[in-house]
Design a protein around this nucleic acid. Structure first.
Lengths: 211, 211
DNA sequence: GCCGCTGGCTACCGCTCGGTAACCAAGACG
DNA sequence: CGTCTTGGTTACCGAGCGGTAGCCAGCGGC
């Protein structure tokens, strides 16, 4: 990691992009480009040349920052799993004091508005692309699995656990299933599968356990 | 693999392999190989050479039966959507006269046993592969969308429609969301997301509308 | 039994891909 | 200021891809 703890800590103002800052910038630019192009064309559909060019670099920059294509995928996956899924719609579900159905409907609208954005649509494609990759690559598989699990736990944490035949985590699994499964159908066929179904779905699955 | 399809099993009665039958056989063999290899390695991960070889043929046979790789994908998609999803678990849900929860639990066990089969696991990967392809290819997209819709309608047809705030088709959409979304999670992480959740999920989503 | 049609094979093309190695310019440092 | 380090470029390689053209063998009609 950081090999120089001494850190002269920027003498006066900015030494103008200190070397490793610059490196970090190009690294991020490459990851951005990879995310963009892989979402649009698939992981196998966009070459390292294209990605590097899209980031204003050449392929050598990729191999200077990553071990290879697979490493770039894994790095993107790590960044993706850290940044995304901050709290999402679950925060809307949690705010108590209002009727459950209203909260769910709000979450549904939030969900729908997110899915209608082209950016989110692309991210969903990338997400499935990464899922497929993870299903075929062991080391990537458990990273994705852990990421899902953390999201699951976050959702379950907001639920009331009681003398129920369904644990909070199981309800969270079902809620996530609706979240992903609904996006699957809605993105393919927006007219016949409205994204707003998210609200009623959450109400059915989480409702009985919502605080 | 049996490499000799001649089959002298039927003595006379069939001078069989009447040329176009033979052609149909190789066509099916190619589709089988494509389905197998694409499920395992992804559509872009298995070449036409490999597919043809796996079917005991060469690439020329592919171009004699299909216009190209894309055409092979679409042909596979058509066959896939016709054969799969016969009735699946929905039949278990429909048999009346037993408690709803029991029927759902049965469907859940059926679902779980199917997902535990390696063959189904592979088909799920292929399904996602085709979904991604459909999201990026217009002509393929609506075929997949129609296929989903027919499954949705089949599910909705078994529901009791009444003075409800949720239509039968909406409930079917949610049920399918659980079906796909749960598989997504379970296949990635079988230990933390049990497939049997399908039962309780159906009960929550379809229960109130089940006959 | 003979010949024409055709399904499939072989060889090949052009291109693109992931990956490597030599090289270079500019920042870091004594 | 001179030297060392390093992030990035260029040029290149070998392999594999989808697709094409020409050829050949065996079926089908006569």
């Amino acid at each position: 990691m950081i090999s120089d703890p001494q850190e002269r800590a920027v003498p006066e103002a900015m030494k103008r992009t200190t070397r490793q800052e610059k490196r970090a910038q190009t690294r991020e630019a490459l990851l951005d480009a990879a995310e963009r192009l892989w979402a649009k064309h698939g992981i196998r559909g966009a070459s390292l040349d294209e990605i590097a060019a899209s980031a204003g670099m050449t392929k050598g920059a990729v191999y200077s920052n990553f071990a290879g294509k697979t490493d770039l995928i894994l790095a993107l996956l790590d960044r993706y799993t850290q940044v995304e899924f901050g709290q999402r719609t679950s925060s809307a579900l949690r705010d108590q004091g209002r009727p459950r159905a209203d909260r769910c409907a709000d979450a549904g609208r939030h969900y729908a508005s997110r899915l209608s954005a082209e950016e989110t649509r692309m991210k969903a494609l990338l997400l499935m692309e990464l899922w497929l990759f993870g299903m075929r690559d062991f080391s990537a598989g458990w990273r994705i699995a852990d990421w899902y699990q953390s999201h699951r736990e976050g959702l379950a944490a907001g639920l009331r656990t009681g003398g129920d035949d369904l644990s909070a985590e199981d309800r969270a699994s079902l809620a996530m299933a609706i979240e992903f499964g609904l996006a699957l159908q809605h993105l393919l066929d927006p007219d016949r599968v409205p994204a707003e179904l998210y609200g009623p779905g959450m109400n059915l699955v989480l409702g009985p356990a919502m605080p």
